[in-house]
């Protein structure tokens, strides 16, 4: 497939993912649209271009691993997994409902394709580093991806894990920071400043790259660069827009954890179709 065609397909896919995750949140009446939409393009690139997996055999040993550290973006993960064939898309209608496999935050014992339960922030990078280290011990070739929110970088454990991965030279580990610059209480730089963020990672002995997290050209080329990565873990700082794709949600901290009503959903779906 030519690159242009590939990118157009991914763009189409990401529109579908956005629409589906908004529908499921509206139906649930609660959930986290803002951080799901900001990470949609990254997630789409990982699941529909970059990662090796077999959705009919979720335990396939050689699969690339994906850890959603920012567990509140569960609607995104569920939509990606359903679209990739891990389970029937009809299950998306039951988000956050009693007896549903789709809990408010991902529970690994319920959902095929979810490697580990997340939801309490700051833990995914350690888990991903643990997988990456054991893969090295066993000489497995698969790679480990983890998606971090920028707000969750406030957690000290992230930096314990960053120090660890740098120290152990885990070059099979790729962290992606969804840098949407908003956390619940507002602007990340006002709540607890993260900048200079790229320098922080570099000083922890990581290879870094900053990209536009909504430009598939840039996302794919960053992931290409990870293929050549060696001797250090790799972090992609993806500049994104919280609520991306829905005008009234974009850059609004208030849409972090609020469901659209039916009318808002209709407007959002129309905008995405344009």
């Amino acid at each position: 497939m030519g690159n242009k065609l590939k990118i157009r397909k991914l763009e189409e896919k990401s529109v579908q993912i956005r629409k589906n995750l908004l529908k499921m949140i509206e139906k649930a009446g609660s959930g986290h649209p803002g951080g799901s939409l900001s990470a949609t393009d990254i997630g789409t690139a990982l699941f529909f271009s970059e990662m090796n997996y077999k959705s009919q055999n979720p335990e396939w040993k050689k699969r690339d691993r994906f850890i959603l550290s920012k567990g509140h973006a569960a609607p995104l993960l569920y939509t990606l997994l359903a679209s990739a064939g891990y389970f029937s898309p009809s299950k998306l209608n039951n988000l956050r409902k009693y007896k549903s496999i789709l809990q408010g935050h991902p529970a690994s014992y319920l959902v095929p394709g979810v490697e580990v339960s997340t939801g309490s922030l700051g833990q995914g990078l350690s888990i991903a580093a643990g997988i990456a280290l054991s893969a090295k011990i066993d000489k497995h070739q698969y790679r480990v991806f983890t998606l971090l929110g920028d707000g969750e970088l406030n957690e000290g454990q992230i930096w314990e894990a960053a120090m660890f991965a740098g120290h152990k030279k885990l070059d099979n580990l790729c962290a992606i920071v969804d840098r949407n610059r908003l956390q619940i209480d507002g602007d990340t730089e006002k709540v607890m400043a993260l900048e200079p963020l790229e320098k922080k990672w570099q000083s922890f002995n990581w290879n870094t790259i900053c990209i536009d997290g909504h430009d598939f050209n840039e996302i794919l080329s960053a992931l290409e660069q990870f293929k050549l990565n060696s001797n250090k873990p790799f972090v992609i700082i993806a500049k994104t827009v919280k609520g991306k794709g829905v005008s009234f949600m974009e850059n609004e901290a208030g849409w972090h954890g609020k469901a659209p009503n039916q009318e808002q959903l209709k407007i959002a779906l129309n905008e995405l179709d344009r």
Partner: peptide, 16 residues
């Protein structure tokens, strides 16, 4: 000296 990370690393290894 990083107990939280230690538990996370162990969790990841157990997944393998």
């Amino acid at each position: 000296i990083a107990e939280q990370n230690m538990v996370g690393i162990a969790a990841g290894m157990s997944l393998n």
